[in-house]
Lab assay of single mutants.
Amino acid sequence: MPSETPQAEVGPTGCPHRSGPHSAKGSLEKGSPEDKEAKEPLWIRPDAPSRCTWQLGRPASESPHHHTAPAKSPKILPDILKKIGDTPMVRINKIGKKFGLKCELLAKCEFFNAGGSVKDRISLRMIEDAERDGTLKPGDTIIEPTSGNTGIGLALAAAVRGYRCIIVMPEKMSSEKVDVLRALGAEIVRTPTNARFDSPESHVGVAWRLKNEIPNSHILDQYRNASNPLAHYDTTADEILQQCDGKLDMLVASVGTGGTITGIARKLKEKCPGCRIIGVDPEGSILAEPEELNQTEQTTYEVEGIGYDFIPTVLDRTVVDKWFKSNDEEAFTFARMLIAQEGLLCGGSAGSTVAVAVKAAQELQEGQRCVVILPDSVRNYMTKFLSDRWMLQKGFLKEEDLTEKKPWWWHLRVQELGLSAPLTVLPTITCGHTIEILREKGFDQAPVVDEAGVILGMVTLGNMLSSLLAGKVQPSDQVGKVIYKQFKQIRLTDTLGRLSHILEMDHFALVV
């Protein structure tokens, strides 16, 4: 994948999101292997301009796509893939009243899908469409860049269908997702969380590099694949309309690839034109409109599966009536509230959605109805927002919020430890010299600072030695090549209790 991002070429006709291997024109390309080798690009942008032909009021008969309808489940399912879809609609009884809503608040519980998330729908649909058009064949390999849930859905379907599955996901995604993927037989590649989507090191860039190296491999490409919004247009939206008897006044959905909100909203605009569509985008993402909503100094966020630093091709923002931004604290607070007060075992993005819903639905009156999409299960986040310690460490809970008995030293300040200034190293000294210094002084790690004293990161003896043994660096290389740029900081005025929580999850903390 090139470091400079080429513009994806656009073909003359058809839909841009065809499933299957992508040609340089962004659509299915038939021909000899030699032709494909000559024409197939190194990668295709996940934010390529959409060429979708959908228009409100256009006859369904003019759609270029294969459409399906929700099917009634048999008493005995032939395999677990038949437990994807037909998820329950559940009334939220307490939270709406707590925040003064007059309307009825309903939750579409997508964590009841077989793999635990709304992404099971698009995973199965992308595979079925690729099999139907002859792209996927027995023994082929599926590769997908994902925040985890699409990966789980694909790995689940691949396990049943017999495909090899490789999932490329950023490091910030939970260990629970990784464990589930491994249990399903998927191979996992992790990428830096802070890598831009168009960087060769991003999950998108690495996935395309693997595709170019592995024979008979395919990126189904949830960011561009029409099967993504079509899955929701054909099934999720129809289920909502049936469950609500066609009567709903507002739908609120958090947005990642945009397939969920695009597919549902398009069908609702056709069948229930008075329904307002509300999009939820986390602070630090750029999906919301108008652009002024996205202006923030924050560039990272903890909530998973929603928000991006690019506009995915499948996201149709014209069908969203209003956007709201959400933050991590309210997302996790509301997710825990949904679990504790409503018994809905949902993930953090569901918290984002409901946090926005109780604001947006203030305009609705008694007798009206708001539906929220709860995308995934708490299963993926047992060591994250479900953990009091994690919430404390991230600053989303305060010590006084917890009532468990603490040891005698818990409320003492870090400054009472009488710490001395640490050994520091410059980023320009060599790895070999740094190892000598650390061994001589008896230290395992040291902060790396520039000549102005600005902290650049941390270097550890173990990481340097393993990097040297693996051949990633040489003793003569500058130590700046092996620094940890993500590390926890703590102030002298913070409590030892807070430091204790940090050290339970990290090997060190830097006192500043």
Rank of each mutant, 00 (worst) to 15 (best):
I188D: 04
E40G: 15
E131L: 04
I167S: 07
R196W: 08
E104A: 09
G31L: 02
Q242G: 13
P88S: 12
F99V: 01
L268P: 00
A159D: 04
I80P: 02
L241C: 06
R266S: 08
A226H: 07
L184W: 01
P273D: 06
V168E: 03
N113W: 05
E144D: 06
P70I: 11
E110L: 03
S23T: 13
M250F: 05
L251D: 01
S50L: 07
G153A: 01
D249M: 00
E34R: 02
E4G: 11
P145L: 01
C15R: 05
M169R: 06
P2A: 14
P78T: 11
N216I: 05
E187R: 02
R132L: 07
I264L: 13
S227V: 01
I188W: 04
A207I: 01
I44L: 08
I122E: 00
A158E: 02
H232Q: 04
V168G: 04
N228W: 00
T150Q: 02
P2L: 15
C15H: 12
K137W: 05
I261C: 14
T193M: 09
H203F: 07
S175V: 10
V204R: 02
V178K: 06
T13A: 14
G20S: 06
P88K: 04
L210Q: 05
R266N: 08
I127T: 09
L230A: 06
D198N: 15
S147P: 00
T135N: 15
S174M: 00
A253M: 06
A226T: 10
A24P: 13
A38W: 03
H65T: 01
R132H: 11
E9S: 06
M169I: 11
S217L: 02
S27N: 14
D86I: 09
R18D: 12
M173L: 05
E131T: 04
I44S: 11
P273R: 08
E213W: 03
N194M: 08
D221N: 11
G148F: 04
G153R: 03
V255D: 04
V206D: 02
R182V: 04
V204F: 09
F111I: 04
Q243E: 07
E104V: 11
F111K: 04
D245Q: 12
V10M: 14
V168L: 07
K177I: 00
S27E: 13
K177E: 04
C15A: 10
R161T: 08
T5W: 07
E62W: 04
